[in-house]
Simulated scan of single mutants.
Amino acid sequence: MLTAMALAVCTAFTAACSSGAGTAAPETTKEAQTQAPSETEKEAAPGAESEAAAAPEGQRHSLTMASGTNGGVFYMLAAAYSQLIPSVNPNMTINVEASAGTNENLALLSSYEADVSFANPGDALSAYEGKREFEGKAATNLRAVMSGNMNYFHVMTLEDSPIKTLEDIKGRKVSVGPTGAPYIMPEIIEAATGFVVNEDYTGEWMSHDQAAEALINGDIDAICATNAIPSSAYSSLTAAHPDVVFISLTEQEISNVTTKHPQSYVPTVIKAGAYSTIKEDTPTVGLRVLMFTNDQVDEDAIYQLTKAIMENTEAAEAIYAPAADYCLETQKESIDSYPLPIHPGAEKYYREAGLIQ
């Protein structure tokens, strides 16, 4: 099933580009596999060094990367790296496993059912500290690899809707993100306004694509979501429906969120033109996505993964624009605030790069 899922994800992503928890830990550390690279792995990603196609000496590694829901940033990042990394290091294979999002990713990695994934930093910290559904089973085996793209808090509705501010969602039906990331939107909304999900408004958990369809069909009154810019789901939504509007957060709402959750959220802006219906800058809050792993993944595997990503950011950006933020400059800004201990493989690379003394 995993192989089929990986093939489906990678095939769908390639086609798009061409058109314009828990089980016990394993007894031993994951070891490198020793098969020859496939013909697909030898194909260079856009912008990758051509000489990278020659397989270097060393261990072979096959990593399972849990992603996210269709139309979301985690899904797109995993698909991009499954294409890029084998092209710059033919000794590495990335197998993509679709997931429901952050919380399922944390469960999969803490139970050693996947090797690498993406999460929102606040949720990763909660899992590590044994909070929420990790109460009594703290995921202290999770390890940080790198910080990446900014995910922006989007609030969307239709032009003729009575919702003109975030506070206007009171009494309304609102999409609050995928089922695999159930806390982020309610957390932001409550911090900003004091509104509690399913008390002050009705929360509906659905994928980004499902939320877009539900808004147009009148099944929900607004969408609240965190996603990279541009989000494929919301780019398509706004392109097809020019009456979709974006709601700004007030200065007080932004202050409320960043004061209550200083380790998770920062003030930011969705720039005018980011989507076809945004005509002026839209103040909001954002968070930097965390790529993470667990303590059983081989040190050299994570070292090679980190090296491949850090040294090929332009090639990654050519596949999926938000991958540009998975770079050394981002790590310089965020490495001291990773919510998890750093994996030894990533630490080795950052020491070589001069980020850690």
Rank of each mutant, 00 (worst) to 15 (best):
S110T: 01
E280I: 09
D200L: 11
V297D: 02
A78L: 04
T258I: 02
K137G: 07
S62G: 13
T102K: 03
Y326G: 12
A78I: 02
N141E: 02
S126L: 10
D336F: 12
P283R: 03
K260I: 04
E39V: 15
E31R: 02
S62Y: 06
T11G: 00
F292D: 04
C10P: 09
Y338K: 05
A32R: 06
S38G: 07
V116I: 04
E113N: 12
L237C: 13
A32T: 06
N120W: 12
T102D: 01
S19D: 14
V174F: 06
S18V: 04
Y183T: 00
G122A: 06
A107W: 01
E329A: 15
Y75N: 00
H61I: 04
T23W: 00
A272I: 05
A318T: 14
A225V: 12
I184K: 09
S207C: 05
L125I: 03
G136R: 03
G20Y: 12
L158S: 15
S232H: 14
D160N: 12
L125R: 01
T40E: 11
N103R: 01
T64Y: 04
D281N: 15
S111V: 00
P182F: 02
D221N: 11
E97T: 00
N198G: 12
A48I: 05
T238N: 05
V73M: 08
F13G: 07
D200S: 13
G122E: 00
A48D: 04
A192S: 12
I254T: 03
T306L: 06
E51R: 14
Q263N: 03
E299Q: 10
L158V: 11
Y320H: 13
A24H: 09
A138T: 03
E135A: 03
T179E: 05
T277Y: 14
D295W: 08
S147C: 15
M150C: 12
N217P: 08
V269L: 05
I335K: 01
T157G: 15
T69V: 02
A321R: 10
K271D: 05
I184A: 13
F118P: 04
V116R: 02
T102I: 00
A21R: 03
E41I: 07
P90S: 10
P262M: 01
P341E: 06
A54P: 11
L125H: 05
C327K: 10
K164Y: 13
P339R: 02
K137Y: 13
I356E: 00
A79K: 08
A139I: 02
F118C: 04
I220R: 05
D160T: 15
D221A: 07
K260T: 05
R351Y: 12
L84Y: 10
W205N: 01
V145R: 00
A222F: 12
E251W: 11
T306H: 08
V289L: 09
N256T: 09
A66C: 01
D221V: 07
G345H: 06
E347A: 05
T226Y: 09
A192Y: 11
K30I: 03
S126W: 09
N70C: 11
N95W: 01
Q59F: 11
P56K: 06
T306D: 05
D168A: 14
Y350C: 03
I229K: 13
M150W: 09
A192C: 11
D336L: 14
S161T: 10
F134S: 01
T313E: 02
